[in-house]
Design a protein around this nucleic acid. Structure first.
Lengths: 166, 166
DNA sequence: CTAGAAATTGCAACATTATAACAATCCTTT
DNA sequence: AAAGGATTGTTATAATGTTGCAATTTCTAG
């Protein structure tokens, strides 16, 4: 089988297009599921997509506040909960932060590559890894339902610039 | 190669022995590294080992408080930091909680099986999984330094009791 | 053995992340 | 237009984690 395409977060790309595509995909997915992508939810998703770095809930809140809306924490958390529930965003537990999902279709059991230097996060969706772990767990009588993998290291851009010596 | 031994957390076992062994291993490891397993650190590790369920920092603090010592949060967090730094305990980010390490020798890049019903966590250390992810990431130019995998599901005990229908 | 240096713990205050409970508003359907 | 459900606003608070400095203990060197 062909190697999976390199995640956009790890290569040069037209990021405006990246955002556009993500929002369009989200709109489609919500329409298909009868879910309401309200202005607040859409705006939060757009904010998460402004970069490939995850944002904390309060960072999202600060951006919204700077725009004139002055939402309180629950409003932001509810929008984030909606996005998580519909597979449009992910939470990175080790960072207490959120990021737009790059694969709203196959968003389960992803692997996150977190650059410890610049904070960029790339999402992989190698289903084989989760399957392999699932087999091992099953052998021990444990029935896995979902898997989350967080890898920390250096992204291509940072690996090349001697960031490792920091 | 032979199947790895089933984690103690997933089978009946003499848990007092479990605790004893863990503390003895910790003492050995600290002696070997010239690290000081002070009474506070030792007691916190012992508390983490009271069960195979992870404990939040404030839960540890409450247990210490009930014993007469009345440590402040920084004291507990510092003890936990020491245990993490020396591979004697792990943090489970999705739970904001800590658990004793079952494999102080090979404690890196572990996989945690979290029972969503009873909270038990079993640690696996399949180095092949991290290696495989490392190869994929490398192909994309990302240099992984550490990996943490959290799987949620049902442990053997809970899977048998219809907990799934909850 | 004792003085200085380093590591550990105590302590007070505070920062960050997340949630509970209830009111107001909006949106759809009839 | 009115009912019902979903969404958002608002207030307050809970849970988790950190900073900075002082006091104490432990180690090391002379």
């Amino acid at each position: 089988m062909p190697a999976a395409r390199k995640p956009a977060a790890l290569r040069a790309h037209d990021h405006d297009r990246c955002i556009e595509d993500a929002l369009a995909a989200a709109a489609d997915l919500c329409r298909a599921q009868g879910a309401r992508l309200t202005p607040m939810r859409r705006r939060v998703l757009e904010i998460l997509w402004q970069s490939h770095k995850p944002l904390g809930a309060y960072a999202v809140l600060d951006i919204l506040a700077a725009e004139g809306r002055r939402p309180m924490p629950p409003t932001v958390y509810r929008a984030l909960d909606f996005l998580l529930a519909h597979g449009l965003a992910h939470r990175i537990p080790s960072l207490n932060a959120f990021i737009g999902c790059s694969a709203p279709g196959a968003h389960r059991d992803g692997q996150y590559l977190i650059c410890r230097n610049c904070g960029t996060v790339a999402e992989l969706t190698d289903t084989g890894l989760a399957a392999e772990l699932g087999r091992t767990a099953r052998a021990h009588g444990f029935a896995i339902e979902s898997v989350l993998t967080e890898a920390v290291g250096l992204c291509p851009a940072c690996a090349g610039t001697g960031a490792g010596a920091a």
